[in-house]
Simulated scan of single mutants.
Amino acid sequence: MNNRIRTDIAHNARVWNYWLGGKDNYPVDRAVGDQVVAFHPGIGEVARADRAFLGRAVTRLAAGEGVRQFLDVGTGLPTADNTHEVAQRIAPDARIVYVDNDPIVLTHARALLTSAPEGVTAYVDADARDPERIVAAAGETLDLSRPVAVLLLGILNFVPDTGEARRVVRTLMDAVPSGSFLVLTHPTLDPELGGEANEAAMAFWNENATPPITARTREEFTSFFEGLELLEPGIVSCSRWGAPEAAAVAQFGAVGRKP
């Protein structure tokens, strides 16, 4: 793995940070981010909707389902209301493990490693495509005999092979017990969600930034939840999960429970 931080090519974590109004980005990220917005003016709304979904999903799982352990894979750069902040506001004893393999994120990990005194927050430097390593490292902080919420928000789109992406999900969910949850978001070209606007933006991204991104259909997204029980409202635009009146964005969101 190359840990050198490239400042000459746009990077998804920094561009996403730019769209969310953060300051952890470089001129190249802002330039590419602005050009993607030119292709897809609503992309900033997608980023904000994905972040808001995180807050609603973690709130529901912590407050409504009693979940006290969270494994957040593909963390990205810290912004407001990170997983540990949302969870520990409800349950100060919540334990959170963040996972990312991005050197940019790693340098900011100390901002994620704060925790309520009663709880724990840890950071694992690992690639999402190495779920076995993630499970082994997470087990040092989380009790894998008790329910865990596994979060993969906007990360499987960076695993181009759908079979490999399914293997990642299967491996992670096989490692956690009954009563655990899978929380996913994923971009799509589905016209019902306005996904045609993603096509030109994704093509530009893949030519000018890293890592390359892959959209998936509703059927492909649904396949990640095989063997799980979807929580209401099922598979919807992530902006409408827990906020049914919100405008749709071209990003699926769903939460499934392991029976």
Rank of each mutant, 00 (worst) to 15 (best):
residue 138 A to D: 08
residue 61 L to N: 04
residue 19 W to A: 05
residue 14 R to A: 14
residue 236 V to W: 01
residue 242 G to R: 01
residue 70 F to Q: 00
residue 245 E to N: 13
residue 69 Q to H: 10
residue 67 V to W: 03
residue 65 E to T: 06
residue 3 N to W: 12
residue 42 G to K: 07
residue 222 T to E: 15
residue 188 T to I: 09
residue 57 A to H: 07
residue 212 P to L: 02
residue 222 T to F: 05
residue 144 L to A: 10
residue 218 R to I: 02
residue 187 P to A: 06
residue 132 E to R: 14
residue 76 G to L: 05
residue 192 E to Q: 14
residue 30 R to Q: 14
residue 47 A to R: 00
residue 139 G to A: 09
residue 2 N to K: 12
residue 73 V to Y: 07
residue 206 N to H: 05
residue 9 I to W: 11
residue 42 G to V: 07
residue 213 I to M: 15
residue 249 V to Y: 10
residue 79 T to C: 04
residue 106 L to D: 13
residue 54 L to N: 09
residue 79 T to S: 15
residue 91 A to N: 13
residue 168 V to T: 14
residue 56 R to S: 04
residue 248 A to S: 14
residue 259 P to L: 10
residue 37 V to T: 15
residue 183 V to M: 11
residue 188 T to D: 06
residue 41 P to G: 14
residue 35 Q to H: 15
residue 142 L to P: 05
residue 228 L to S: 01
residue 202 M to V: 14
residue 164 E to D: 13
residue 213 I to H: 12
residue 259 P to I: 07
residue 169 V to L: 11
residue 247 A to T: 14
residue 255 V to K: 06
residue 175 A to P: 02
residue 103 P to E: 02
residue 107 T to G: 15
residue 246 A to Q: 07
residue 47 A to F: 02
residue 148 V to Q: 10
residue 27 P to I: 03
residue 167 R to G: 15
residue 104 I to L: 10
residue 46 V to Q: 09
residue 49 A to G: 12
residue 109 A to V: 01
residue 7 T to K: 12
residue 63 A to Y: 08
residue 140 E to G: 13
residue 148 V to F: 08
residue 95 R to C: 10
residue 234 G to Y: 02
residue 171 T to K: 06
residue 150 V to E: 09
residue 143 D to P: 09
residue 182 L to S: 09
residue 54 L to M: 14
residue 179 G to E: 11
residue 171 T to Y: 05
residue 200 A to F: 03
residue 107 T to N: 15
residue 115 S to F: 07
residue 173 M to F: 08
residue 258 K to W: 06
residue 247 A to G: 12
residue 32 V to Y: 05
residue 253 G to P: 05
residue 132 E to V: 13
residue 198 N to E: 04
